[in-house]
Amino acid sequence: MTDRARTRERKAAGISILVALQALACAFFLADLVGDVLVDGFGLHLAVEAMAALALLVAVVLGALRVRGLIADARRDAAAVAVAQGALAELIRLRFAEWQLTAAEADVALFALKGCDIAEIARLRGSAAGTVRAQLARVYAKAGIDSQSGLIALFLEELIGLPAA
């Protein structure tokens, strides 16, 4: 689960707790109101109290709708990310195949796409920096670009061009 999703879930939980407390308060106000009306009859003071209780009731409903909206957003977000992830993974697979990268080159290119520099890639793959530099140079040549940012831009450009799902 991503940080963003977790943040959103926490937010939904916080508002939910607030809504539950409002519901409690609202029930007590309404019960209290009924009791007062039975004892004292209906007056201006109680009319104001009634309005406050009703406003709280509306707040409960609106709060519930807000939580519903947050949950729906979170799910849409997760679905969109999943679709984009699937699409991007597929696109990367297609391009790498098109450029006829070897397995090692594809591996290095994927790390480069994720933003790793040569030293990091070398450490992750347990190979020498010189080897990685040579592999990257071959990847760039096959893809017709000349830098890591160029490689990233190739994919980003295609994603930006995608119509909104």
């Binding site: 689960m1 991503t2 999703a5 879930e9 939904a12 939980a13 508002i15 939910s16 707790i17 809504v19 539950a20 519930a64 939580v67 949950i71 979170a74 799910r75 997760a78 679905a79 990310v81 999943a82 992830q85 699937g86």
Partner: peptide, 19 residues
């Protein structure tokens, strides 16, 4: 995909709080 299923697998906060 994992995020979606993870979301589906838990009850939302209102359900849990009221329960």
């Amino acid at each position: 995909m994992t995020a979606t299923t993870a979301n589906r697998r838990r009850w939302d906060p209102i359900v849990r709080i009221t329960h």
